[in-house]
């Protein structure tokens, strides 16, 4: 799984499913999905840490022996930081972001959440599955965007903040006309 692994060398301890900390994290992810699905982007922005790194690598179809090469980070689909994500929110909240105006109907199904806590820190490594259904205009089909997210979530005085996200898509040739939505 080295191709998917974005964790550091720091030791981390698994957080038990159903524990108080796990539930707190679950709430964070459900809240996030709800804010994004309902296009409450400025509120979502408040869930982001100011040192955010946000990336969506390219995927490539390769032989099993080259599995590491199936995730490409030299060029990505999203290659963002806090400032650029806030710029995207500003655009989407403006008058002329036609790619999402009228907006897609989007639903984010979050599951398979696994949490571990980095030792001697307030940071949690969180892996989640995400299935996005996206529908536009009169389309009688949905663009499906299944992916696996590798996050770093930080506990702060103002609540949990997303400090890092890497989204591993399940398509090499992406089947949706743009990523004008957040994953």
């Amino acid at each position: 799984m080295s191709a998917h692994n974005i964790t550091t060398d720091e030791q981390s301890v698994p957080i038990a499913i159903g524990s108080e900390t796990y539930n707190e994290m679950l709430q964070f992810y459900y809240t996030e999905a709800s804010l994004l699905d309902n296009i409450r982007l400025e509120e979502w922005g408040q869930m982001l840490a100011e040192d955010l790194k946000y990336g969506v690598p390219i995927r490539q179809t390769r032989m099993v022996k080259d599995t590491d090469a199936t995730v490409v980070r030299s060029v990505q689909h999203y290659h963002d930081d806090y400032r650029s994500i806030m710029g995207r929110i500003l655009r989407l909240s403006g008058k002329s972001a036609w790619a999402e105006d009228p907006p897609s109907r989007v639903r984010r199904f979050v599951s398979n959440i696994q949490v571990s806590k980095r030792e001697n820190s307030d940071e949690f490594e969180v892996v989640s599955y995400l299935l996005i259904t996206r529908n536009r205009f009169d389309d009688d089909f949905f663009d499906l965007i299944p992916c696996e997210r590798h996050d770093l979530v930080r506990k702060t005085e103002t609540g949990l903040k997303l400090a890092k996200r890497e989204v591993i898509l399940d398509q090499a040739l992406l089947g949706t006309p743009n990523l004008a939505i957040f994953l």
Binding site: V56, S74, V75, Q76, H77, Y78, H79, D80, D81, S84, G87, R88, R91, A97, W98, A99, E100, R136, L174, P177, N178, L179, A180
Partner: peptide
């Protein structure tokens, strides 16, 4: 350059996402 280009052009590019929504 790579970050800026990714943010303006291509898949998630804030400029070209409007184009790819128009052509269909």
């Amino acid at each position: 350059m790579i970050m800026q280009t990714t943010q303006l052009l291509g898949t998630s590019g804030m400029v070209e996402q409007d184009d790819s929504d128009t052509w269909p």
